[in-house]
Amino acid sequence: MTTRDVENEIASPASWTVQGPPIFARRGGVGADDVFKWLVYITAFAVPAVLVALFILLVIDAWPALERFGLGFVTSSNWDNVKEQFGSLPYIYGTVVTSLLALLIATPVGVGAALFVTEYAPRPLRVPVSFTIELLAAIPSIIFGLWGFFVLTPIMRSTVEPFMKSAVGPLPVIGSLFQGPSVGKDLFTGGVILSIMILPTIVSISREVLLAVPTMQREGMLALGATRWEAIREAIIPYARVGIAGAAILGLARALGETMAVTMVIGNSSRKITGSLLTPGYTMASAIANQFTEADNPLYFSAIVGVAALLLVVSAIVNVAARLMIWQISRGVAKGGTRG
């Protein structure tokens, strides 16, 4: 007992190691302490091991397609099983368009809701409002899909899309986004359902970031005679900007990988890319869900695994970027625990 080295520090429990053989070790060959330690180590290293195995396996399976098509795998928009040509650009395009659309809708709403909770809401409303919105995150993807399939799609087809076509369609440039028949199952509806699904992510993280803004900051501004909105615009938003961007990107990361809800409303079509949002399409995730178990020839299978590998890499990059941004602001505030 006396051999325990405690004088160093008590800052981190990790540094509390036993100097010399622990007492239990002396009695039987391997001590319980060691066994426990190794169990913990094994489970801990299982996490990176799974990640690495996952990546390697996907790349191995995807290799025939990647090797055959090279860069064309991501730049070609021809996905044709009959002619054995596999270019995943339509899926990448579908993923990018729906995710960006989701961000475009969800970021203002999400940040607005977070501002309401932190800046405007009367105290008794704060917790219920943020809790309710965050509860959205607990609803399974398939239920959003069910709702989108039976409720949202008909509304989009009969009301929203014709309205957008008549209101925005005639405008130059942006009008080209709303052309063609209103199908209801298209990139537009996919983006809308995604925006609902990423809302809780954006709300909860922007709320944390906004709460991390020092009170002095907003009080100072208010004391200068600013209205509440001016205080938000001039003092709070600039301070929280990076963190909010991080929240948005974390929302983006969720949007990229969403599968079931999007699959049920996006129209599932590998057709050529058109500029219009009213085109049925595919995201990478929904293409995998639809085609994976049925890819009945080796090259086709390899190509669909290639899409999975691509999705893995893209979502990893986006996740890392988001975490770096959020980490940066939480470090700036010198307040730990704002992670995720």
Partner: peptide, 17 residues
């Protein structure tokens, strides 16, 4: 243009499972 297969590259339209 398209050919015959279990999965062809449909020139247009919506896909259902």
């Amino acid at each position: 243009k398209v050919g015959a297969s279990t999965t062809v590259n449909w020139p247009g339209g919506v896909g259902g499972k």
